[in-house]
């Protein structure tokens, strides 16, 4: 998929664990892992909003388009 999720980079910048983020935004660690691994087919605006709120970033910091 040409959309790349860079959530792991943002987490690393903040030295935050995926489990902590999952708990903070109210989704299961399994679902967050699906998103982090790039297997997700869609992301809800509410999830995106919650992640941006907790990490203090923009949606563009989490997603990148790579045509190759």
């Amino acid at each position: 998929m040409p959309i790349i999720v860079t959530l792991d980079v943002e987490l690393a910048k903040r030295k935050m664990r995926a489990g902590d983020l999952a708990e903070a935004i109210g989704i299961t660690p399994q679902n967050l892992s699906v998103l982090k691994a790039g297997h997700a087919k869609a992301i809800r605006f509410s999830t995106l909003e919650a992640i941006c709120k907790v990490l203090g970033c923009q949606p563009g910091d989490l997603l990148r388009f790579d045509p190759d």
Binding site: I27, L32, H39, A40, K41, A42, I43, R44, T47
Partner: peptide
């Protein structure tokens, strides 16, 4: 159902 399962 597959899409729903992979919607985060």
């Amino acid at each position: 159902a597959d899409e729903q399962r992979l919607t985060v």
